[in-house]
């Protein structure tokens, strides 16, 4: 659930950032996007992620940036980094230098 911190919202990716969770996460993120807030992504607990999960983050990153808002990571687990690298998404997900 999004926890509002002043003008920003934090989205917790949980432990599994994968296809069976993306519908619910998508709805939560849509809310954040509609409210036009800065977004923090918390992904340090993620133990498993897949293409659907990372694709959703990618879509979020693009949308938020297009709206001129800030999006940044609040902790990224190794699994997220490794899988992003395999899928060629490291730079697109703003994980290149961290």
């Amino acid at each position: 659930m999004g926890v509002t911190v002043s003008q920003s919202v934090r989205i917790d990716c949980g432990t599994r950032l994968s296809i069976e969770c993306v519908e619910a996460l998508h709805q939560e993120m849509e809310q954040a996007v509609r409210d036009a807030q800065d977004i923090f992504l918390k992904a340090d607990d993620v133990q498993y992620c897949d293409t659907a999960g990372l694709q959703l983050l990618l879509a979020l990153v693009q949308t938020v940036q297009a709206a001129g808002l800030q999006i940044s990571w609040q902790g990224v687990s190794d699994v997220v980094r490794d899988t992003s690298k395999l899928l060629g998404l490291t730079s697109a997900l703003l994980l290149a230098t961290d």
């Binding site: 993306v22 849509e30 879509a59 979020l60 693009q62 899928l87 998404l89």
Partner: peptide, 17 residues
């Protein structure tokens, strides 16, 4: 690995599965 994300729709139109 080079990704092509050009087909990714706008966020609200995204069907995440």
């Amino acid at each position: 690995v080079l990704v092509n994300q050009s087909a990714l729709p706008e966020f609200s139109a995204l069907e995440p599965e």
